[in-house]
Design a binder for these strands. Sequence first.
DNA 1: AGATTTATAGATCATTTGCTCAATAAGATT
DNA 2: AATCTTATTGAGCAAATGATCTATAAATCT
Lengths: 213, 213
Amino acid sequence: MDINGPVESTVIEERPGRRRLPPQERRQQIIDGAVAFFAEVGFDGKTRDLAKRLGVTQSLLFNYFATKDELIEAVYEQVYLNRLAPDWPDRLTDRSTPLRDRLLAFYTEYSTLIFQYEWMRIFMSSGLSGAELNRRYLKHLGDVILRPLLGEIEFAARSGGTPTMEDIWNLHGGIVYIGIRQHIYRTPCPDDPSVAITRAVDRFLLAFGVEQG
Amino acid sequence: MDINGPVESTVIEERPGRRRLPPQERRQQIIDGAVAFFAEVGFDGKTRDLAKRLGVTQSLLFNYFATKDELIEAVYEQVYLNRLAPDWPDRLTDRSTPLRDRLLAFYTEYSTLIFQYEWMRIFMSSGLSGAELNRRYLKHLGDVILRPLLGEIEFAARSGGTPTMEDIWNLHGGIVYIGIRQHIYRTPCPDDPSVAITRAVDRFLLAFGVEQG
DNA sequence: AGATTTATAGATCATTTGCTCAATAAGATT
DNA sequence: AATCTTATTGAGCAAATGATCTATAAATCT
């Protein structure tokens, strides 16, 4: 398949032995592998197991990260970075499109973003271990997405009063719970959550008398 | 500071030294301590730390449990046992009382049962680590509580179609998410979740045209 | 082609950790 | 009070684990 040396024509593609990579690239490769690894086994996963999975020496990890904790920090950064698209606040409050459409668009996109093995499990693991990053993320989500959402529903509400912040969290939690069932509990789930999401959103809007498509 | 010889008349109540307990009692004490301990630090908590917290030697733990895994099994058993009261299925399907009352009664009781530090965290930890017990519990919950609930709502529905099983899971998830925010993420939450629960239940019933009180 | 740089491997250290076992003493029995 | 039973301890083993350090070889430069 692959001819690497001048005289070797047989396959050797297994065990590349010692592949020398640009530090930037190797570092990223380690982080990517660590994300998948820690998502699977939790943050108490052993550096030797991670190294083996990467096809690399354990000592190499400590060439790129001084301590295991530092590696975990890099994992956090990698996973949490850019999870909340910056244009959602604007799109959610763009009253030129019906509220229902905005809500469905948001939760459709957001759910495909977060209903993923790595994100779900690392978010839950880091939450359990008390990572401050989790609280920061949730506060940010509340401030930047859910609170404005509350305002939009208040504005569009025609009957049945207006929601509280707890109501919004309830809507959100009911949707997120699908991902928890899927990736944390590994329980049977719908392949496509969008219909459940649509129905949940519609029930919510109905309760506050918001016009539906 | 501390006089240990025969002439001690002052308080020594700290450090009971070697307290000898009936095995049954000691075993239970260890399990209780282990529940609190593993809930706090996760199942990778060290047996030495647990022993220290119990004021007991680490080797003593292995007198009562052959392995750490066996201790963890005992923790599971202790925590999962009797979490689902056996009379709920009957009470939920007792059509002599209004459906809304039944639903509120269930979720009020159930939430006070599960919105507790130990349960929430051990359930999540064991879920993350892939414990079969979790899936069993959730399947049981679905079969014995949520599925019958679906039947009740179908029966009481006057308009707006009837719910699907996914709708029921959505109702359930939105409520459970309160406990997750409280004990896993440790994010600000209402002290009393009952009003949020009531509003969630009412929105749900409204969507299916169920008579409300 | 040879010299240079440095990413990587391999060996190893110091703790940690699950677990064992003989010695000890707390409480019951006589 | 002496004896007996056994719950508990303390020392310690073997394997695992995070981290260190020097030798090696892959790529680059001259």
